[in-house]
Each structure stands twice: as C-alpha cells, then as structure tokens.
Design a protein around this nucleic acid. Structure first.
Lengths: 151, 151
DNA sequence: ATACTTGCAAATGCTTTGCACGTCA
DNA sequence: TGACGTGCAAAGCATTTGCAAGTAT
C-alpha cells in the first residue's frame, strides 16, 4: 500500500518523466497481486484511462524491467508476465489447472544450485525454477462447474 | 548411434506414416547433441533435402513432442528448442556468453521440490530449472577473437 | 482407394517500431 | 523549447493453418 507515493520517486530515480500514462500503469502494477501479462495490464489500465495505448504499456513495462523495477517471467504459455521486483529472489509454483502462481523460496535449493554451477566451472548469473503442479486430492471444485446440490 | 534404425519403429509406435521428410527430420534430431531451435533444425534438414518446408519441421516437431518423443524447452531467448526425450529428467545450465547448454541432474533438488509442492498442497506435474551462468575466471578465449600470439 | 502428409502462402498472436504530434521539466 | 513520451498503424518474428496436390499403407 505504499504504491502511489513511490511512483514519482521511482521515475525520478530512473531518469523517467512522470507522465499520466506512466502514473496509471505503475499504479496498476503496484496494486497487482498476481502476475499479469501485458494485455491484461492494458485492460486494467484502460479501466482507469481509456486512452492509453497497448504500445505504451509495452514500452513502459520494458523500461521498468530494464531499470530493475519489474521482473519479467515467461511461463509455459509463452506470454511475458510481470511483477514488481522483489528484494529477495523467489521461484514459482504454477497451478496448471487454474494458472495461479504461487511464490516460494528455498535457501537449500539456492545453495545446491551454486554448488552445481561451481562444480561445472561457472558462476550463476541468474536462474529460474518453475514447478507446474496440480492440487492434491483432486478437488471437485471445478470453476462454476459444480454438480447440482443434493436436496 | 542407434539413430536411424529406430525411426521406422518410432513412427509405427506412434501411428505416424514413415515419410521422406520425417525420416530426414528425425535423423537430424537423433544426431543433434545440442538443443536446436526449429529454424536451425530446418537448416540442417535442408542440408540433406532442400525441398523440406519449415512448416513441415514445425509440424513434425510438434507431433513428436506430443507423443513424448521430444522435449521442448523455452529458454530466455523465447524460441522453442528441442531435444530427444531423456529417460531421466534433467535440468539445464545455460552459458549466457556462448548460448551453450549443459545438462545436469540433482536428486537432492528434485526431492526438495517434491517437498515444497506437497507442503503447499500440490502434486508436481512437471518442472524446469534453468541456471544462467558465465565461466568462472573470465576466459580470454572469446571465439576466434584471440590476440596475436607472442613470438 | 483414402486418410494422412506436404509445400506454399496467408494468417496468427505477441511484441516492437517509425512517425508526427503532444508534453514534462 | 527541446528532449522525451505517446497514439496509431505498420512492421517483425516465431509459429500455425487452409488448401490443393502428393504419398504411404
């Protein structure tokens, strides 16, 4: 909830002009709790200001990613998805049934990766771990597809 | 080197007709030691038979992936890359300087992933771990860019 | 024979870009 | 005002698809 306040600062820090479209786009980004793709971002942005072009969202999101403000992910569907850059690295659990993304972190896995890279004569630049999952004990809860309730 | 022999079998097993293009494409695939993208595959295929269309490579590669014969990977560059499906799951180390891909496997990491998924109430469907790396002790060996040898 | 394959070209979906017009600093 | 930002439409890429002609079984 420290969203709107930081936007001006963020722009200044990165030598970006504070414009209307950017204000809106960054507001939407800072309020997102999921990992929206660009078209979804554009949808949300347009709900606030109809006049902002898809191209502008692309440009802004690319800028912010270059500046390290956003993180770009590309899961199995191919589209780029964004989230505010975290301080701490984390990985993702992706529910293949709903598309939901859950973040997690395992220091032990991080450590093992370091070890593996070193063993091969490399230093880690970055990495990503995506675990595609489905709920245990297959829930009957299939999105508005419930069988009629028994009287 | 059990390459060509299996191709007829592979097709039969999967209900695919054994055609010229498929023979060539599967030969190229079975001989690849790297993780080529479709355009690169097409280049190699065309070195053998000029007449095979890119669309056919795409179609074949998709078929084989659906049948579980190939694995599709999508690394940071966005293009799909393929390799013959291994029996044992493995992950990838990607050299960001050369694009080289090195395979590795860590049972410990596999186990930790299981644990994490279970802890969140999920079962793993699949996963991928990509570690982007660069060589330790920056080698001067920069691809045909060597300084003149000292006499 | 006939269902499956192919080549070609056109279409797609996501993303980037050229350009002329607006606008923040 | 001058460099930066924006909307729009067109261009790019990687990949897919419709269709008519070719081919394996």
């Amino acid at each position: 909830m420290q969203s709107k306040k930081d936007i001006a600062t963020l722009c200044k820090e990165n030598g970006l002009r504070l414009t209307g479209p950017r204000r809106v786009i960054m507001k939407v980004l800072s309020e997102a709790t999921d990992h929206p793709d660009v078209v979804e971002l554009h949808r949300r942005v347009n709900a606030i200001d109809r006049g902002i072009a898809l191209a502008t969202v692309y440009r802004t999101v690319n800028l912010l990613q270059e500046k390290g403000v956003l993180e770009r992910h590309t899961f199995a569907d191919g589209r780029a998805r964004y989230e505010p850059a975290h301080q701490e690295h984390h990985d993702h659990l992706i529910d293949v049934e709903t598309g939901d993304v859950i973040e997690f972190r395992s220091d032990e896995i991080e450590r093992l990766q370091e070890e593996i890279a070193r063993k091969h004569g490399f230093a880690i630049v970055s990495h990503k771990l995506e675990i595609y999952v489905k709920p245990l004990k297959a829930k009957v809860q299939l999105r508005g597809n419930r069988p009629p309730a028994k009287p």
